[in-house]
Amino acid sequence: MTKSFDKIAGIVFLLISILFISESLKISGSAYGSTIGPKTYPLILGIVLGLLSLRLLYETFKSKSESKEKSTLEIKKFAIIFISAILYIFLLEIIGYVLSTFIFLVVTFQVMERGKIISTIIISAIFAIGVYAMYVQLLGGALPKFSLF
């Protein structure tokens, strides 16, 4: 796992560094007096990262392949939570903080462990309304209001 990840990471970071170098060359040069313009520093960083990625790739290919350690990942659980998180962000400014937080918490609590639906609903409601009340009413902050219009 680590080794194949290292290969991919080495290549990805090498690509990032190449992109970074080419993009920083496009930044216009020094605007005044100094010979050191806004592009010098990113350019150096790009080159250093490129060299380090090459070094990582070299290390990875040189080292012997390690024994694979198979661990079972809860991909399904994670995927549901991750997608609900994206939906949560998307809905946050549409249906407001309280409702979106409530829905997100109910869904994720149930994904983590099925059952106890009543305590799930109570805890989610207390948390969502509690945070909103504390932050908006008490501290005068701003959060997206509930509105369907």
Partner: peptide, 16 residues
């Protein structure tokens, strides 16, 4: 504190 409650709440707090 059961993880099933803790983890989603940490996510919500970071979002908030």
């Amino acid at each position: 504190t059961p993880k099933k409650y803790l983890l989603p709440i940490i996510i919500t707090i970071s979002f908030f």
